[in-house]
Amino acid sequence: MAENHNNPAASSVSAETAAPPPGILVSGHFNQAYGYQTNRSRGTKDWLIMFTLSGCGYYWHQDTMRHCSSGDILVLPPGTPHNYGTPEGHVWEFVWAHFLPLPSWSEWLSPPQDKDALFLIHVESEAQRERIKGAFERMIRDSLESDFYRTRLALNAMEEILLLIGQQTNRKSVPLDPRVEQVLGFMEQHMKMRHTVEELAALVALSPSRLAHLFKQEVGESVMETLLRLRLRHSSRLLEHTTMQVGEIAEEVGFHSPFYFTKQFTAYYGKSPSHYRKTVRKAADEEEP
């Protein structure tokens, strides 16, 4: 995020860019060449988040132009002036979302001490970048639908992105060993695959015994215990927010036997998948006005 003191908008006054109406989650994937520019001198009534996938973009802020490159996240609170675009000689690929935060998100969106409240974050880890990109892709896909469950899934993806940003900016947390983080990211992105410690160890150029020891030391549980937990937690979200059959969910999260999935799910949550779904749906219906 290099600084440049030449204002790209100084030579001409750009027209105000219309903003989507606040109150709904709107997201998309842009790939814009030189000439693309957005200008909102008063900002918007909602939050805006942008994650650069490749290329280069600029953002004009407090008389300084900052460049955004691959792995950079820009978060703009309501009322923050927008003036961003693609610099000459570049193409800017990024994903974005306009959103109004749920009350529980406030701790991850605490503004900086300066009054202009701007977040500029660089994500170094390739595994974290892929996870954030995957969450954006799910959010974009689900936000195109208007039914209750797809809308909730889009909000869940937005919450995941904010949690990952919060993890990234929490200076008190100790980062995982990058090899362990890569294995975690691979399991999360390929949950349907059959995984073995041997294959995962080869992925990060470690012996199986070394990966097993390092993983337990960093995460606090074994590789296979973590994989089981990831699968069960993802299956609970699918039970809550989709109409997929239990057998379909079992296959989606990597269980090749619905009976074994039901056994493991019941042991973890204290309810069978069907009972869990009924309980959650009943609670959701009671919360509806």
Results as ranks from 00 to 15, higher is better:
164 L>H: 08
150 R>G: 03
249 I>C: 07
76 L>H: 06
48 L>S: 12
41 S>L: 14
216 K>V: 02
226 T>Y: 11
70 S>I: 00
4 N>P: 00
218 E>G: 05
203 L>Y: 07
81 P>Q: 10
202 A>W: 07
208 P>I: 04
115 K>F: 11
257 S>Y: 06
94 F>R: 00
83 N>L: 15
256 H>Q: 13
151 T>V: 06
167 Q>V: 14
110 S>T: 15
66 R>C: 04
15 A>N: 10
9 A>L: 07
223 V>Y: 04
71 G>T: 00
103 P>N: 05
179 R>K: 10
165 I>G: 02
243 T>W: 10
288 E>T: 09
189 Q>C: 05
71 G>I: 00
210 R>D: 07
207 S>C: 04
149 Y>N: 14
239 L>Q: 08
189 Q>K: 12
40 R>Q: 15
89 G>H: 08
54 S>M: 06
103 P>K: 05
121 I>R: 01
289 P>R: 08
131 R>S: 04
32 Q>M: 09
85 G>N: 00
27 S>Q: 04
184 L>R: 10
125 S>Y: 07
128 Q>N: 14
104 S>N: 09
252 E>F: 12
36 Y>N: 07
55 G>D: 08
180 V>A: 00
212 A>C: 00
29 H>V: 05
135 A>P: 02
278 K>I: 09
221 E>L: 09
157 A>T: 05
35 G>R: 05
96 W>H: 13
282 K>W: 05
162 L>Q: 04
67 H>Y: 15
73 I>N: 01
136 F>C: 06
57 G>V: 00
98 H>N: 15
262 T>I: 01
89 G>A: 08
199 E>V: 10
237 R>W: 00
192 K>C: 01
117 A>I: 03
214 L>A: 07
8 P>K: 04
277 R>Y: 06
208 P>D: 07
70 S>P: 02
28 G>S: 11
29 H>L: 12
285 D>C: 06
185 G>Y: 01
98 H>R: 05
98 H>K: 03
226 T>M: 06
56 C>N: 04
13 V>F: 10
212 A>Y: 01
272 S>A: 13
288 E>F: 13
